[in-house]
Amino acid sequence: MPNAAISLRLQINGHLHDLTVEPRVTLLDALREQFGLTGTKKGCDQGQCGACTVHVDGQRVLACLTLAAQVEGRTVTTIEGLGEEALHPVQAAFLEHDAFQCGYCTPGQIMSAVACIREGHAGTDDEIREYMSGNLCRCGAYPNIVAAIRQAAEASR
């Protein structure tokens, strides 16, 4: 039945959420429209900007090119689940280094940065630049983003 909705149970930020949606609903739209988790941003909806970066099973991925149905049985972490009490060190470093202006790409940048450090791709400034290139920032906060990630990476070593 092509138009039938399906029932899903998704684990998001450590909580189980039940959801009935059409199969074509992306994880991004489910987060924003169904769960009100609007920290995950829609910048292009076609895999070209990185604003919708979330973690699925700890890996950074794009929520706009992921179906909600695909992540059933996997764990999803969004910006809202990153540092629920205290700020995550990457969030704190972004704040300290003014690593954003308008703030719209910021949750995606931070989710990407947390993974970038975890992957071991934050060893040098050039490595950070390359491995953060999937997150576009039109305000041009890149130098400050690199500084923030460098600091957070050094602190985590």
């Binding site: 895999g47 990185g50 970066t53 890996q59 950074r60 991925v61 794009l62 090119l65 992921t66 990407s112 993974a115 970038c116 992957e119 791709h121 491995y131 953060m132 290139s133 999937g134 997150n135």
Partner: peptide, 9 residues
């Protein structure tokens, strides 16, 4: 190729 996120997918 692509970006770190896309390569993870």
């Amino acid at each position: 190729a692509a970006s770190a996120q896309l390569r993870n997918m």
